[in-house]
Design a protein around this nucleic acid. Structure first.
Lengths: 200, 200
DNA sequence: AAAAAGAACGAACGGTCGTGCTATTTTCCG
DNA sequence: CGGAAAATAGCACGACCGTTCGTTCTTTTT
């Protein structure tokens, strides 16, 4: 007997709306997301969609959060099943490659960085929080790899995290412009060089 | 005696408009650029501004091109005065750091990648052409460094170009979200590691 | 089964968008 | 200086924007 109450209809349609919104924001970014288009995509009225969020900004925040949960469940959490150290670190990167492959037409979370990095407001705050969190997760995983002796003892986890993230950015960038296959090959080679370079 | 005709007023105001447009697009991206805001910023009427370009898309293309010329004159061209090889390659990177420092609130050219990488049309084509061009310039500079014996003979110029660009992306990313100083320090360390790793 | 709450709708609001069209002003050249 | 040509302003347009409101229909609670 589940302790969770049965999902209310409201929550179901809200999730449905968020799924569509995430897909739309994938191509047009959070700034390009319009309630009218979203409503047409879901098959609802504008006001019906609107009522679920109260404002456009709250909708955008909800989409940003939905993207974060998606990313966590597809990239970060599965990698936690790998043993600490280099295996887990490489698992994160491997999953991230799959994520980039599935988001060649644009990643909401990365677009959001470009869209809000020069502004103020709740959305920028959310983006900064997200990026800090994943960077910290990367650094933590790198720290475990150092502790385990998989990487050099004098290595800096934060520096490793920065370089990993930079390569992921390069992967996304090239995948979007030049195709996933060549981008993946370049990034792969770069990562092999990276591991070798930091190896104990 | 200059063969060029004296600059018409039209060209002057067009350049003025483009300057303002570039500044606005720096914060809001090319998709966020609106003719009304631009006109108010310049101090002209909407239709007056509009007449200079004929369509919003042509305006965006002109801004993209203006950004490219700016980038070329501030990053690529000055570096050509350095001797071929590692000095020129490092000069490009150094200038690019300055560019990133001056564009912490957003870079039109990088935002454009996020905005158009999942679409079709003239703007995407322009972005792809730009990025290909700079990547090729990087690879060429890396090739000179290999020829000169500054970098390992078995190194792949395209691979080096990819890794350099990835670090630049990381620099822009972190500078926009966490501030230029820490981002610059991380990127600096990463570049030193990069040079050492590819060194002959 | 009745009552209260909530979800979705359709219409309308004030604004802004990009884009034409027509005057009017400004610039250029003989 | 004067007349052609170009540049700019002014205005209007239809479309879409986010948002509000009142109403209807559905769901949940009593």
């Amino acid at each position: 007997m589940p302790v969770t109450s049965p999902p209310r209809k409201s929550a179901l349609t809200r999730n449905l709306i968020l799924e569509h919104a995430y897909a739309l924001a994938t191509r047009d970014g959070l700034e390009g997301l319009s309630i009218g288009h979203l409503a047409a995509d879901v098959g609802m009225s504008k006001s019906g969609v609107f009522a679920h969020f109260g404002s456009r900004e709250d909708l955008q925040l909800a989409v940003l959060d939905a993207g974060a949960r998606r990313f966590a469940s597809q990239v970060m959490q599965p990698a936690l099943r790998e043993p600490r150290g280099l295996p887990r670190l490489r698992a994160i990167v491997r999953r991230w490659f799959e994520w980039a492959c599935a988001h060649q037409n644009g990643c909401v979370l990365l677009s959001a960085v470009s869209e809000y990095d020069g502004r103020d407001g709740a959305l920028r705050d959310g983006v900064v929080r997200q990026q800090s969190q994943w960077r910290e997760a990367l650094a933590k995983a790198a720290g475990y790899a150092i502790e385990a002796g998989h990487l050099r003892a004098d290595a800096d986890p934060q520096q490793i995290a920065f370089e990993i993230y930079a390569l992921i950015l390069g992967l996304h960038h090239d995948a979007g412009l030049f195709g996933f296959a060549p981008a993946s090959a370049r990034a792969d080679a770069a990562f092999e060089r990276l591991w070798r370079s930091w190896q104990a």
